[in-house]
């Protein structure tokens, strides 16, 4: 079966002339349909750059990124926006909700832009809101609701256009531990319902919810951990073990 996401030898260089910095160096990997992949690594390892490049927010200096066989590194500006809106979903650490829009409006924003009929929009928003327990607060504004509710709103927004792939960038970073655990269970549940998720995190607990964890360091993929049939707790231990090794490198 063809991979959903195929990353071929991408490279990202910042700066010009003599003072260049390679944020990504020959990174290749693939994600299949229905996977839940975690990307881990210390600060400055290139996690965010990788996510930005994959999310089409940034363009790679070299290399190809294929989503369902389509090379998104070659798309122009407008098609990229459409692609992002129709096929990718995003969840960010700081929610990135628009504070002048209600919860409902925040969720339906991508549909409004893709000119979906009002009735369909309404039914899709209502269904998602019900599933994530937001139906009581649809007409409230982001500043009136809790962090967990905000992040669930963001998840709904990411899911509203039935994306092929969801990118989550440190989604639990701003949440208290209970909300964070709830959200991770939600993501794991989504994954079980066939949604493909790629999550960037530095938190071993969050990463332990993934099926597979890629470890990135100095712009290169350094290690891959696969959960397989082990329990989440065992996987958590394995990740921690791996991190200890990484931490000693980090100290240098």
């Amino acid at each position: 079966m063809e991979s959903l996401l195929q990353v071929n030898h991408i490279e990202k260089t910042y700066g010009k002339g003599g003072t260049t910095f390679k944020a990504l160096d020959d990174v290749s990997f693939s994600i299949d349909h229905g996977e839940f992949v975690g990307i881990m690594g210390p600060s400055g390892a290139g996690k965010s750059t990788l996510l930005n490049v994959l999310a089409t927010i940034d363009t790679p200096t070299q290399g190809d990124i294929l989503v369902d066989g389509e090379n998104i590194a070659k798309l122009d500006e407008e098609s990229l926006s459409d692609f992002r809106r129709d096929h990718l979903g995003f969840i960010f650490q700081d929610y990135n909700l628009l504070d002048s829009l209600t919860v409902r409006e925040n969720i339906l924003l991508p549909l409004a832009v893709s000119k979906t009929p009002v009735e369909e929009t309404r039914s899709r928003v209502d269904a998602l809101a019900k599933r994530f327990g937001l139906n009581q607060i649809l007409d409230q504004y982001p500043y009136q609701i809790s962090g967990g509710q905000k992040q669930r709103t963001a998840v709904c927004r990411a899911l509203i256009s039935n994306p092929k792939l969801i990118f989550a960038d440190e989604p639990t970073g701003a949440l208290d531990s209970k909300s964070a655990t709830d959200l991770l269970h939600t993501l794991a549940g989504l994954n079980e319902a066939e949604t493909t998720i790629m999550m960037v995190t530095h938190d071993a607990y969050a990463a332990s919810f993934c099926r597979r964890v890629l470890y990135i360091q100095d712009g290169r993929l350094s290690k891959e951990l696969i959960r397989g049939a082990t329990s989440r707790d065992a996987f958590y231990e394995a990740i921690l073990e791996e991190l200890k090794g990484g931490a000693s490198d980090d100290a240098l």
Binding site: A55, I57, E77, E78, S81, D82, F83, R84, R85, D86, L88, F90, F92, N96, L97, L98, L109, P110, V113, R157
Partner: peptide, 11 residues
């Protein structure tokens, strides 16, 4: 944020 959720520059 709008750019990130896939809203085009034109919009």
């Amino acid at each position: 944020v709008l750019r990130k959720v896939g809203i085009s520059k034109r919009d």
